[in-house]
Structure formats: structure tokens, C-alpha cells
């Protein structure tokens, strides 16, 4: 097991190095002069030269690369041109908002996806199965930003039940404690004896969670169904039935644990994707996370910020995939003991 972890960690280093290299050269070799693009057509030669030296663009490419690599290894992603803040600070400020939304979406998608997937597999070729699978296919065919707008149209504009954006009602004058607003809401509930903060945080989470969670939900339901069908065909399920174990227990204790092995990998990958795929959802719901920040950085042509953002998220993505791999080996005794 330790060997397995070390081997996976060893593979991580070249991958991360490759990611840094690719991000650097993508931006460096992009057509056009970044300084010119950032400052616009009206900038004079002096301004351009100043920005170039500020960005290190007057150095030879190989030196630029080594300098960049050195800074990244020290955990320095540079400064944003627009705000002049350290990019790492800007990212960590927004990280928890993105993670909170990714977690609620993953929980929503996993629970509903597994329940629907199991139901579809148990009642194969019934209307439950057909409607779940049709729904799943529609779910993966849907543009997320459109779904978000339709949800707002129905639940915020039409029924006036839920807010259109943000993380908390601004009139509550709220100072974040952990920056997970749901948890903060609970803390405030204990502290002040009123649930307003918690309820507001929850209400603001619902629509973004559904919008962001729909595609993972569809994918998890499909994976669970096919995995469950595969497991229910296995001999050991027959053994359990022949031993008189009640059907409910056969499905939920014996089969499900096996069927969930591939599903857990899928959930992990989807969680990683949600952290990055939130650009559209966060923009629409004015969710102050990394996705929205990257979108604004792109609009403002703030290349150091874009570079830092994509590097940060890719690191995250790679790490989560690693954790999923390790987790899989923990829950699967066949791998664990080898």
C-alpha cells in the first residue's frame, strides 16, 4: 500500500511539471504582444516597455520560463495586473466559495444519482428505468448556463422563492467566519439564536447547486445503473439470495458496496471538474468564487491572473484525481491487500 502511494506520488511530479510548462508556453507563445493586448491600442511605447519589463517579457524565453518555474515552486503566482494583489491571495479568498458550491453539488448529484441509478437497475426496462435514463441523457445534453437561467426564470422571477444570485442576503451584514457560509450560518444560529443567516445561505445555494449538479447527477445515475446491473449478474449475488438473505439486503448491503466502487471514482472526477466547470454557473449566479474571478480576469485581459488561475485549478484537479485513486484502493480490498 505504501509502495502504491509512493509510486502514484512519484508520477505526480512530472505531471505537475508538465502542467506548469504547458501553462507557461501557452501564454508565452500566444500570438500577439500580451502587453499590447493588456494596454490596448492607444498605449504609447513607454508604457508598453514598462509593462514588458514588469512582466519579464524583455528577457529571453528560456530565462522567463526558469524564472517562472522558480516562482511557482516557491508558491508565488505573481500579481494581478488589474488589482495589483498577489494572485495566490485572490485565489484563496475565493477558493472556499467555489469549494462550498462544489461540495453541495457533488452531494446533491451523488445521493440522487445513486438512488435513481439503483432504482433503474432494480427495475430494469420498467418506466422507472426508461424515465431515469432518458432524464440522464437530457441532463448531459443540456447547456448548464441555460439551465441556470431557466431555474432563475422559474424559481426567482416566476415564483419568487429563491434569490437570483450571491451567497447571502446583503442586508444581513454578515462577516464570514469559516467562509463556508452554511457552517457560518450554523455558528451564527448558536451565537445569536436566529436561523436567518443559515436559511439565507441555504436559499442562495439551492439553484447554483442544482444547475452545477445536473450533469454529474446524470453521469452518476448512468454509471450506478450499469455498475449495479453488472453486479446483480454476479454469482455472489446468487449466493446471497440462495442463502435466504432478504432482497432488500442483497441489493443494498451485498450488491451496492461492489457497485459503488466505479461510481466513487466517477464522483471524484466530477468533483474535480466542478471546481473548474463552475465558470459559467458562478458567473450567472454572481457566486464570488474562482470561476467568476477567472472569467473577469479573461474579460480584463489580465494574463498573469489567468495563468495563475488555470495553474491553481489544474493543480487542484490533479491532486483530487490522485486522492480518488488512493481512496479507491482503500475501499477496494482486492487492491488494498496486494
Amino acid at each position: 500500500m505504501l509502495k502504491f502511494i509512493l509510486k502514484r506520488l512519484g508520477l505526480l511530479i512530472p505531471t505537475l511539471l508538465g502542467v506548469v510548462t504547458l501553462v507557461f508556453f501557452m501564454i508565452a507563445l500566444a500570438p500577439g504582444d500580451p502587453a499590447r493586448i493588456m494596454l490596448g491600442e492607444r498605449a504609447n511605447a513607454e508604457q508598453l516597455a514598462q509593462l514588458r519589463s514588469e512582466l519579464g517579457l524583455d528577457q529571453p524565453l528560456s530565462k522567463q520560463y526558469l524564472l517562472y518555474l522558480g516562482r511557482v515552486i516557491r508558491g508565488d503566482l505573481g500579481k494581478s495586473i488589474v488589482t495589483q494583489q498577489k494572485i495566490t491571495d485572490e485565489l484563496t479568498d475565493r477558493l472556499l466559495a467555489t469549494i462550498e458550491l462544489a461540495i453541495t453539488s457533488t452531494i446533491f448529484a451523488s445521493i440522487l444519482g445513486i438512488v435513481l441509478g439503483v432504482a433503474a437497475a432494480r427495475k430494469r426496462n420498467s418506466w422507472v428505468d426508461y424515465s431515469t435514463m432518458t432524464g440522464a441523457l437530457v441532463g448531459v445534453s443540456m447547456p448548464v448556463f441555460w439551465l441556470a437561467l431557466v431555474l432563475i426564470m422559474i424559481f426567482s422571477v416566476g415564483l419568487d422563492l429563491l434569490p437570483t444570485g450571491g451567497r447571502m442576503n446583503v442586508r444581513l451584514y454578515f462577516i464570514p467566519i469559516t467562509n463556508f457560509y452554511l457552517i457560518d450560518g450554523i455558528i451564527m444560529w448558536f451565537r445569536e439564536g436566529k436561523a436567518d443567516y443559515f436559511v439565507s445561505a441555504l436559499k442562495h445555494l439551492i439553484l447554483p447547486t442544482i444547475a452545477l449538479g445536473t450533469i454529474p447527477l446524470a453521469i452518476i445515475a448512468r454509471t450506478t445503473r450499469s455498475s449495479m446491473l453488472e453486479v446483480l449478474k454476479q454469482d455472489y449475488v446468487k449466493t446471497a439470495r440462495a442463502a435466504g438473505v432478504p432482497e432488500r439486503k442483497v441489493v443494498f448491503r451485498y450488491a451496492l458496496r461492489n457497485a459503488l466502487l466505479p461510481v466513487i471514482t466517477v464522483i471524484g472526477i466530477q468533483f474535480g471538474l466542478l471546481l473548474s466547470g463552475a465558470i459559467l454557473t458562478e458567473t450567472i449566479f454572481a457566486w464570488p468564487g474562482i470561476g467568476k474571478w477567472i472569467y473577469h480576469s479573461i474579460s480584463a485581459r489580465d494574463f498573469p491572473a489567468v495563468q495563475g488561475g488555470i495553474l491553481f485549478i489544474s493543480f487542484f484537479f490533479v491532486m483530487i484525481n490522485l486522492i480518488v485513486d488512493l481512496l479507491y484502493s482503500v475501499i477496494n480490498p482486492r487492491i488494498r491487500l496486494k
Partner: peptide, 15 residues
């Protein structure tokens, strides 16, 4: 493999 280390949507947007 390195390209796959980037989330697909993010890669597209950045390009």
C-alpha cells in the same frame, strides 16, 4: 496526459 490534467472546459476557455 498533461493535457488531460487540465479540466476540458478550462482548457478551452483559456485557449
Amino acid at each position: 496526459d498533461i493535457m488531460l490534467a487540465f479540466p476540458y472546459i478550462l482548457l478551452t476557455i483559456v485557449i
